[in-house]
Amino acid sequence: MQVEGYNIPEDFFYDTNNYWIKVNNDEAIIGISAYGQSTIGDVLYVDTIDKGNYIKKLEDAGSVEAGKWVGRIIVPISGTILEKNGAVIKEPGLLNSDPYGKGWILRLQINEKNELNELMDAKAYAKWVQEQVAKEQEDEMLI
């Protein structure tokens, strides 16, 4: 579906840090949503922790640099890193140009399946994005 000009695939899960999670049995692929990448701007650098590491939900799994800002990659679910996307590390702009495809960040072995219940489906995330866009417009007024 399209919301406020942003693509939100319907078969993914999402969280309020703008990560998408595509679940395939016991595995999950994680990336930053189209709306999420638009809020950070052109990505210049991405790095993540290596394959084999176990990471808990909301822990730091790497960092992203965009323009004059540096932020953390915070995993939305717990799991063991099966693969990090070497292409996005080599070419960080993929995160902007193809957020749901070549711009994926990590593939995880899901450790706590019940954590998926705490994520938003596409419909709930679309509503959340609409609220954020409205908030940004208010921020614009403040500045």
């Binding site: 638009s38 950070i40 323009g67 004059k68 800002w69 940004e136 921020d139 614009e140 403040l142 500045i143």
Partner: peptide
């Protein structure tokens, strides 16, 4: 609430 999600937009302020 002062902080925009797009961090770069806070620079003018």
């Amino acid at each position: 609430p002062l902080l925009p999600l797009q961090r770069g937009r806070f620079y003018p302020y």
